[in-house]
């Protein structure tokens, strides 16, 4: 993980939530959320004038990825990014420290956050009629979420689906860092035929390939963060850069999951061992907001439409 004073200060709380969620497991989601609110970290990306820390998304990235690394089942990254994206429109919500996420909420249908397994939601930001709205919701992760109250249209223009997908992908990159660590540790620890299984070439080659996927995903997260710039009016998304990065992170999910489970053997498919919290997240996260093909199609279309060479398109839009 990258050195960061912000990360150092919040990581103990993330770790504590992780322990209660995965190993004990006795998480009280609302109490955990309240602690996050207390920490002030929901405002990481807001300017100091709004009681925020004034970080750019790139500067905040170690913290945002750590939320995935510690498998937080809370909409922390989603909320922090939405506060940054819609500061004026959401002024009231921010004052109340509402827990937000991107999702869909059609009339008469259940409210559906883009990300599965989320606890503690107060409202969904949804795309509607070419604009975006805030839809208050109630419910929980088992029963599902329902619209509860008045929908508020926002005047701001934002590709909310891309933002929600990016929020998920930054966390997936963090989750892959953890999965790689778990896998290497296990390969060095588990002994068969009288030596650690990590000594066998067949596993070394697979873990090397997995390392490549994880490093690509981490770099893609940095590219995406660089394509999300905050200004007075909110967050502007550099569509091609963020879409390409999301595609790369999503494309890494399945191979990383497959190798992690292959190396772990039977222990990896037990409820007790923490791997499944991550691999479940990676499999669901790959789909959330659209799989890699959805985003790759958009990038390919943009490249063709640009009329530029592939190399020049890459330099101009994805460097």
């Amino acid at each position: 993980m990258t050195d960061s004073v912000f990360l150092d200060s919040i990581q103990p709380l993330f770790q504590d939530i992780h322990a209660h969620f995965t190993s004990q497991p006795d998480l009280n989601p609302q109490a955990a959320w309240d602690e996050l609110v207390q920490s002030g970290f929901l405002r990481l990306l807001l300017p100091e004038s709004a009681e925020g820390a004034g970080l750019s998304v790139a500067e905040a990235l170690p913290v945002l990825m750590a939320a995935g690394y510690w498998a937080l089942p809370l909409p922390y990254v989603e909320t922090a990014l939405l506060y940054a994206a819609l500061p004026d429109a959401l002024a009231d919500a921010i004052d109340g420290n509402l827990a937000l996420a991107v999702g869909t909420c059609g009339p008469g249908e259940p409210a559906q956050p883009l990300r599965l397994g989320l606890h503690c939601l107060d409202a969904l930001v949804t795309a509607k009629d070419g604009g975006i709205t805030v839809a208050p919701v109630s419910g929980d992760v088992e029963q599902g979420w329902r619209l509860q109250g008045e929908v508020t249209p926002l005047s701001q223009v934002l590709d909310i689906r891309l933002l929600g997908t990016a929020a998920e992908c930054l966390q997936l990159a963090g989750a892959m860092q953890r999965v790689l660590e778990l896998t290497v540790d296990y390969a060095n620890t588990r002994q068969q035929f009288g030596r650690p299984i990590g000594k066998y070439q067949a596993l070394q080659q697979q873990i090397s390939v997995m390392t490549g996927h994880c490093h690509s995903a981490v770099m893609a997260a940095q590219l995406a963060a660089g394509g999300m710039q905050r200004s007075n009016t909110g967050l502007s998304l550099d569509h091609h850069r963020v879409a390409a990065a999301c595609g790369m992170i999503k494309a890494a999910c399945q191979p990383v999951v497959s190798t992690a489970h292959a190396v772990h053997g039977a222990i990896g498919v037990t409820e007790e061992y923490e791997l499944h919290h991550y691999t479940r997240r990676l499999l669901a996260g790959r789909l959330a907001g659209g799989s890699e093909s959805r985003w790759f199609e958009q990038v390919g279309q943009a490249c063709l439409d640009s009329g530029a060479s592939v190399f020049d398109f890459t330099l101009a839009n994805l460097s």
Binding site: M219, L223, E297, G300, C303, V310, L318
Partner: peptide
């Protein structure tokens, strides 16, 4: 488009 988009995205991350 999908194939082109994948290759462009991989190029970007590799670079």
């Amino acid at each position: 488009q999908r194939t082109l988009g994948e290759l462009v995205s991989r190029l970007a991350v590799l670079r």
